[in-house]
Amino acid sequence: MTTLIRLFGEFFFIGLVSFGGGLATIPFLQNLAARTGWFTLAELADMIAVAESTPGPIGINMASYAGFGAAGVAGVVFATLGIVTPSVIVILIIARALSEFRASRDVEGAFSGLRPASCALITAVGIRLIRASLFAPEFDIKAAVLFALLIPATLKTKLHPLVFIAFSAAAGVIFGM
């Protein structure tokens, strides 16, 4: 029981302090591994690979995986609930405050600045992802061809994103990417 409560507490803390998505949790998990011995650094590398290659948000996957290693199925539940609880509390407070002050000129003003900036952050992520999957460690011609095929298809059609994911997974296996 104490392990479960500790799992909840440790992941609550990680959820509270990691800004910017699942991969931002990695340094905290490394620290957690060193302090608790719940998993080794080699297992952390496996965790990242599994978290990235299974469906769901990466941070949730990492918490679930670490929780399972520490305390089995109950560990999965406590670690996952721990990491999402701070988000839920913070967002509910913000969402409520926003709808109360919706009419306020300042809220409108803040969002008029935030919208293009948020769009820029997503564009930057896109550029980094392209750099990492097409150009690192060296230019990958197969990936580039696949990307060139996908761009017009995603922009011009309303096909479900999963169609493109499945197609690309198949292409990866068939062409040994």
């Binding site: 992802l129 392209i130 999957s133 996908l150 994911i165 690309s168 997974a169 990866g172 296996v173």
Partner: peptide
């Protein structure tokens, strides 16, 4: 392959 799709 999936990573390329995620980029697009």
């Amino acid at each position: 392959g999936i990573r390329v799709a995620v980029c697009a």
